[in-house]
Lab assay of single mutants.
Amino acid sequence: MTEYKLVVVGAGGVGKSALTIQLIQNHFVDEYDPTIEDSYRKQVVIDGETCLLDILDTAGQEEYSAMRDQYMRTGEGFLCVFAINNTKSFEDIHHYREQIKRVKDSEDVPMVLVGNKCDLPSRTVDTKQAQDLARSYGIPFIETSAKTRQGVDDAFYTLVREIRKHKEKMSKDGKKKKKKSKTKCVIM
């Protein structure tokens, strides 16, 4: 069974824990209790493949930012979460993405942009803004509501699919490099 290491990042209060708990335990946590770091595991079937999701729910508070490099190193894919009623959390996505790329030393890291709290009427981040940002990053965008469960499975499952595509691409690139290195030079 394939294991996928997913990391949920975003500013404090955007609903990272609520999304994760909704996926794992099928219930909505409405009281806000700032996370330092929590880890969850769940076995699911995605596109006919049974897999184990190892999900790291991270601290959004700035005082825990020193811990970010460590979990970013171990993560295979990242859910970059903002709240649709919090423009600052949307603007912060850029910083999370840049930090992930720096730590992973790669421009090509599996990510999904997630606009959470889409059940709320007080939207300050337009869907088109988020779609445009995701398009500019070359990553999928999904709106979710941890409260109603809308888009929750889709967000995590899409990230797994992005990781699969990335692994497939990397193995193809690896095979191309191996083929090239088999060419021999004969000096007579």
Rank of each mutant, 00 (worst) to 15 (best):
V125T: 01
V125G: 02
V125C: 01
V125R: 01
D126R: 03
D126P: 04
D126T: 06
T127C: 12
T127K: 07
T127A: 10
K128I: 11
Q129L: 08
Q129F: 10
A130R: 02
A130Q: 04
A130C: 13
A130K: 02
Q131V: 08
Q131S: 11
Q131L: 08
D132F: 03
D132V: 04
L133A: 05
L133N: 03
L133W: 09
L133S: 04
A134Y: 03
A134V: 03
R135T: 10
R135V: 06
S136V: 10
S136H: 14
Y137F: 12
Y137M: 14
Y137R: 02
G138I: 00
G138A: 05
I139E: 02
F141W: 01
I142C: 07
E143S: 08
E143Y: 03
E143C: 04
T144M: 08
S145F: 07
S145Y: 07
S145T: 04
A146G: 08
A146Y: 00
T148S: 13
R149V: 09
R149M: 15
R149F: 13
Q150V: 06
G151K: 13
G151Q: 13
G151H: 13
G151W: 11
V152K: 08
V152G: 07
V152Y: 13
D153E: 13
D153H: 12
D154E: 14
D154S: 09
A155R: 00
A155W: 01
A155P: 09
A155M: 14
F156L: 10
F156Q: 00
T158R: 04
L159T: 01
L159H: 00
V160C: 04
V160S: 02
R161M: 02
E162P: 00
I163Y: 00
R164M: 10
R164G: 10
R164W: 07
K165E: 06
K165H: 07
K165S: 06
K165M: 11
K165W: 01
K165C: 02
H166E: 04
H166N: 12
H166W: 10
K167F: 01
K167A: 04
E168D: 08
E168A: 08
M170V: 15
M170R: 07
S171I: 05
K172E: 09
K172A: 13
K172T: 09
K172I: 15
K172M: 07
K172L: 10
K172W: 06
D173W: 03
D173S: 10
G174L: 13
K175T: 07
K175L: 14
K176L: 12
K177S: 11
K177D: 15
K178M: 09
K180G: 12
K180A: 10
S181V: 05
S181A: 10
S181L: 04
T183M: 08
T183Q: 15
K184G: 10
K184F: 00
C185L: 04
V186S: 15
I187L: 14
I187R: 10
M188P: 15
M188Y: 13
M188A: 15
M188N: 14
